[in-house]
Amino acid sequence: MRAPPQEYANPPVLVIRPDSARTLGLVGDLWAFRDLLWSLADRDLRLRYRQTALGVAWVVLQPLLGALILTFVFGVVAGLSSDGVPYFRFTFASLAGWGLFAGVLTRASGALVQNAGLIGKVWFPRVVLPASVVPAALLDFAVAVAIVLVMGGMDGALGPGALLAPLWALGLALLAFGCGLVFAALMVSYRDVQHVLPVAMQLLLYASPVAYATSNIPAAWRGLFLLNPVATYLEGMRAALLGTPAPAARTVAVAAGITGAVLFAGQALFRRLERRFADVI
């Protein structure tokens, strides 16, 4: 039995002031309210496939169909290079990573507005809401990776690099969560975000090496292209799962730096706006 943190379980005195901020940081809040986080994630997972005919099969079907389309458009019609990997397996592995990123980002961004009823009636650290979308996205990712590994195992191309996959996934998830915090906080006041986000995600999908390899980008532009941390993480993910060339240490450092900055800025903005959510939403 773990005792809950003293601050929440039995505060000697809790002082509420116009400017009083919480004492626990992002991680502390999430840990203290892990049961709520888990319950919300559990709710989303249970509801996702309720009243669907194919049920959990959609976890597999969705990325399969997506990969088929990208394979047809970019591999067959446009004939781009996939670093020597079968095109379908290539796009499927990329989509696993992209799906994690896009899933966390878009669902985290909408988490506050979708749970407006809770925000007006109950107190808890609001950061729990965007965080609660992460487990479902991770589950989707795990299933997709398992499929890639099975395909890889059949081809005999699976190496020990696969062990690095969780690290690349962590990078994608943290980056997406940082962005999600920013958009979620802004969406409370400005619903414009809701409309901008799908367009931006579409743009980013094509600007990232999901359906094509970075080697297709002219060498002169490659430096700029790899400033996009999503590109670096996807290259890394493919290196782990498919044995393609890994990104250079320098680009990985840049991606990690950007991720850290986004995460820090995201939680700072979120905290600043958090106390007004109930009044504005």
Partner: peptide, 14 residues
């Protein structure tokens, strides 16, 4: 749920 604009409250207990 919402912060006060002025003043303060002290609460002893959960």
């Amino acid at each position: 749920i919402t912060p006060p604009t002025t003043g303060e409250v002290r609460l002893r207990g959960r």
